[in-house]
Write a protein that binds this DNA or RNA. Structure first.
Lengths: 204, 204
DNA sequence: GTCTATAGCGGGATAGAC
DNA sequence: GTCTATCCCGCTATAGAC
């Protein structure tokens, strides 16, 4: 049986692997952790997915693809820049409140072992077109000021920053303000309006 | 000899440990990596610092303290919020262009093993006062609008986000725009003006 | 204080029974 | 396909010579 046609046990292993890898990263996770989480024997992991590395690549690719497809959809279905900003904000909230560890996972891998993710980015280059489209929209909007590519790039960078970074420091926020996870996501839900405002102000 | 009075070999080990831990994280690093980097024997590491964990804690604490003291200084020496914003921006640039891996290192540890950092945050609670002071400054500035604690908090969150997040995705930016490291930091240097503008606009 | 040698263990991977 | 047993490497840590 190949990795592509996976049965019930295989999917259980994949789910367990996701859970473990996402929390602990590649080098922090062990095959035993994953086997226990999936209620199978260590040998089963190797039977289905050959090695730890192969299994990890599958998980990383799966998560990356889900993220990218949602973001692409968001960037492409809206017409004006204001709607895109609001929708992107919604999109981040929905993904990351449902999967609180995804952002950290991707960032950790990007910094400790950029190779995997950079390869995915290059192979799935079509996201670039969506970003380019947003760049043009931003340029048109702020063209009056005096057109400047770097300014547009910085605008997008700021947009992404305010949408993702707060989720990355969730453990810190939770600890400082003595919150529960639920409080945090509630805070982030209310914040949606503020951070859209924040970004939109710059356009006006 | 204790860990506090460390001779030349000890400092060489500390420097090597910093280099290795920062790039690979705790679980991604081995004592052999560090020993090679320091040009000493593995046994020396244990002689000076007892265990991998103790050595790691020292490195983490050292970096955390440097970061916090610089940020505190920035937050406290300036009087008006506009100056603080600009100075914070400078501060991040100076630290992170000189130590490109620090931001990622702290974030990775915060997400894979929050315990260490949260303990440091709690033990060195004095940073909270500086942040509180900024919060009050922000509140006074935007009070006209209608005072709102959450709004002020979000403002600070946005401020931190645009200052740190771009450094976190450096590998991605470098790869996408086919930059060298030097180009990236040059870009970030120019960006300083834009991102201050970005944040300041909201106050106006 | 610094080195070599090695203990001891945990983790990835495989062989082989069923 | 699934399990048990086991191999073997690499890593932390220590003992002991010098």
């Amino acid at each position: 049986m190949t990795m592509l046609e996976v049965n019930e046990t295989g999917t259980r292993i994949l789910a367990a692997a996701q859970k473990v890898f996402i929390r602990k990263g590649f080098s922090g996770s062990t095959m035993e952790n994953i086997a226990n989480e999936a209620n199978v024997n260590k040998a089963a992991l190797h039977y289905y997915f050959r090695s730890k590395e192969k299994l990890f690549e599958l998980i990383l690719k799966e998560i990356y693809m889900i993220l990218i497809s949602k973001i692409k959809e968001t960037l492409e279905t809206k017409e004006c820049i204001e709607d895109i900003i609001k929708e992107l904000n919604n999109c981040c909230f929905e993904i990351l409140s449902e999967n609180p560890y995804w952002a950290n996972f991707i960032m950790n891998e990007l910094s400790t072992n950029p190779h995997y993710i950079l390869e995915l980015v290059i192979k799935n280059g079509r996201i670039n077109f969506s970003v380019l489209r947003v760049l043009v929209l931003v340029r048109n909007k702020i063209f009056k000021k005096s057109y400047d590519l770097e300014y547009s790039l910085n605008f997008i960078l700021n947009l992404i920053s305010v949408n993702i970074f707060p989720y990355l420091i969730r453990p810190l926020i939770i600890s400082l303000f003595k919150m529960e996870d639920a409080n945090f996501f509630n805070f982030m839900k209310n914040r949606k309006i503020d951070s859209s405002d924040f970004v939109l102000k710059v356009l006006k």
